[in-house]
Design a protein around this nucleic acid. Sequence first.
DNA 1: TATTGTTATACTCTATAACTATA
DNA 2: TATAGTTATAGAGTATAACAATA
Lengths: 146, 146
Amino acid sequence: MLDAKTNDPLELGALAGLLGYRLRLAQQAVFRDFAASVGEVSPGRAGMLLLVEANPGVTQGSLARAVRLERSTMVGVIDALEARGLIERRRGADRRTKGLWLTRPGRAFVARLKRRIDSHERRVASHLSVLEREQLLGLLAKLAAR
Amino acid sequence: MLDAKTNDPLELGALAGLLGYRLRLAQQAVFRDFAASVGEVSPGRAGMLLLVEANPGVTQGSLARAVRLERSTMVGVIDALEARGLIERRRGADRRTKGLWLTRPGRAFVARLKRRIDSHERRVASHLSVLEREQLLGLLAKLAAR
DNA sequence: TATTGTTATACTCTATAACTATA
DNA sequence: TATAGTTATAGAGTATAACAATA
């Protein structure tokens, strides 16, 4: 780890070989590129929009479990996306539930989002070969499999 | 991605092959294990303690740059670690700076921390071979190199 | 009784802008 | 003028606990 300003080297000590530390640095780098190049919506919110696109009518609770948020947290998140006109709640067959759907503007937004995410992904992976990227995705999935 | 409660499969859609998505899931898994098994201090704070241990007398600003936090954010972080009696500020040769040092209890705390982190690391990497773990660390470093 | 969405509330982590003391 | 630490303030993002409607 280099001190970004003075280039004083800072000893990493016990930190050097820890997966959690390397994961955090990598994720910071990727998220920083996402914010700069995709913008408009955070990585987490973008992921939710992609999940609603792939699972039209998904209930709030089901989406919350998928992204590991509390149901109560999801309320505000959906409120915000609904206020931006990107998704809408519809009454489900089970009248306790609310199904989530992309609005027409929401679908256009997600289409644009996907194009930007594509070029973001290419830029982020530009230092990796195709094989290395596949290896990395596989190892990450293995690590996350609990 | 499985819905954790009902086992309804949720389609991942465009999310499936994104490095940022896989990074986030992997990091969540690792941090959850850290919280459950190391506890007492968050991964980020633990990292700072390890950096102070490896760089006695490091200034607040230098540490802030190393972990990519604002100087102003670092103030409160150090306040909290100081209030817990783990580190102390000492006046530097340049009298604008404050050097950071582990206290005696802080050194004991970090020693215990390192033992817990070791077993945490082994558990997290338990699904990976030694070679796979090395590959993963290397690929993550490559990804984070901007 | 159990589940879904909701509200009220609070906590953690972080940033920006303006200040002070030194350099 | 520039830098290190500081303060005040604000904004994401998240959680817990209690509640109403529905199953």
